[in-house]
């Protein structure tokens, strides 16, 4: 997103260009237009724009993309619950 930027260097998004078959699915689904195809391979254009929604990795046929899993909606309440439950050794369900 051009008009909204979040913390640089935080999002965890990895692409294995060797494994990529250039199908373009990640380019299609990303709502932040992070990818483009160059020489029939995907390329990460804007790693800091990623919100870790996981749409790209879910739709990659060869699992060439890794995204930090977000099993909720990325909110503070979820993280607090998760940290707290780790302290007392419990599993955390997702938030909303």
């Amino acid at each position: 997103m051009k008009d909204f930027r979040y913390i640089d260097g935080a999002a965890i998004l990895k692409l294995d260009r060797e494994a990529c078959i250039g199908c373009g699915q990640c380019v299609t689904v990303c709502p932040h237009r992070i990818f483009s195809l160059t020489e029939k391979k995907a390329e990460i254009l804007d790693p800091n724009g990623c919100m870790e929604c996981g749409a790209c990795s879910r739709n990659c046929p060869v699992r060439a993309i890794y995204v930090n899993p977000d099993d909720g909606c990325g909110c503070a309440a979820l993280l607090i619950a998760r940290w707290f439950n780790t302290l007392i050794g419990k599993e955390t369900a997702s938030c909303c």
């Binding site: 909204f4 965890i12 909606c73 990325g74 503070a76 979820l78």
Partner: peptide, 26 residues
């Protein structure tokens, strides 16, 4: 705190980023 909690409703904040700012904000 409430502003930090709003990250859950925005379509551009990554969970990794939220975790990072929470370590300072909380």
């Amino acid at each position: 705190y409430l502003a930090m909690n709003f990250t859950g409703s925005t379509p551009f904040t990554s969970l990794s980023g939220v975790a990072r700012e929470m370590r300072r904000g909380l």
